[in-house]
Design a protein around this nucleic acid. Structure first.
Lengths: 79, 79
DNA sequence: CTGTATTTGTTCGTATGTATT
DNA sequence: AAATACATACGAACAAATACA
C-alpha cells in the first residue's frame, strides 16, 4: 500500500493516508487515532517513519498529540 | 558540552549552538556550515539527532539545506 | 563520459525516559 | 503496580543529488 518506488517519501504517504481518513470521516475531530505501534503494524512502516508522518500533520494543525494519552484529530482540522 | 540531564533535549541544544555561532559571525549568511557527519563528530551526537536540530533551524528559516551540496545559513537569518 | 567522493534524504532497528491511565 | 503511549537518542544502511578528477 505504501511504497517507496516513487518520489513521495513513505512518511508523506502516511500523512496523506491519515488525511484521507479524516476527510472520509473515518477519524473524527477530537477523537483519538490509532497509536504509533498500531499504525506501524498496520502499514508495516517503522515507528520513526510513522512519527515523521504524524509530525507533518501536527505541524499543519491536523493532529494534536498528548503525551501519555494518544494522538487526536484537531477540533477543526485544516483538511 | 551537550548534556541531556536537564529538560532541554540535545537536538534543541544543538540548534541553540548553531544559532549562537551565526550570531557570533562564526557561520555567515549564504555560507555553508559543517556537514552533518562533521557536526556529529564534533558534538558526539548521533547524526539523526543533529538532523533534528538542523530541522528546527530550517523550519524557522535560519538554515537552508541543499541535497548533495550542504547546509547553508539563510541570506537573512531570523537570529 | 565515467567513476568516485561528499552530502543530504529516507528507512529500519533498538533502547531508555516520561506521563497518563 | 502495570500497561499504554509519546519523547528522546543512538546506530546502521542504502538512495539520491551534486561536484569533481
Amino acid at each position: 500500500m505504501i511504497d517507496y518506488d516513487g518520489p513521495v517519501p513513505r512518511y508523506v504517504q502516511l500523512a496523506e493516508l491519515i488525511r484521507d481518513r479524516i476527510r472520509a470521516g473515518q477519524y473524527l475531530p477530537d477523537r483519538r487515532i490509532p497509536s504509533e505501534p498500531d499504525l506501524s503494524s498496520e502499514t508495516g512502516l517503522a515507528r520513526e517513519t510513522v512519527r515523521r508522518g504524524l509530525r507533518l500533520l501536527v505541524d499543519e494543525g491536523t493532529l494534536v498529540r498528548v503525551p501519555g494519552k494518544g494522538t487526536y484529530v484537531s477540533p477543526d482540522p485544516p483538511v
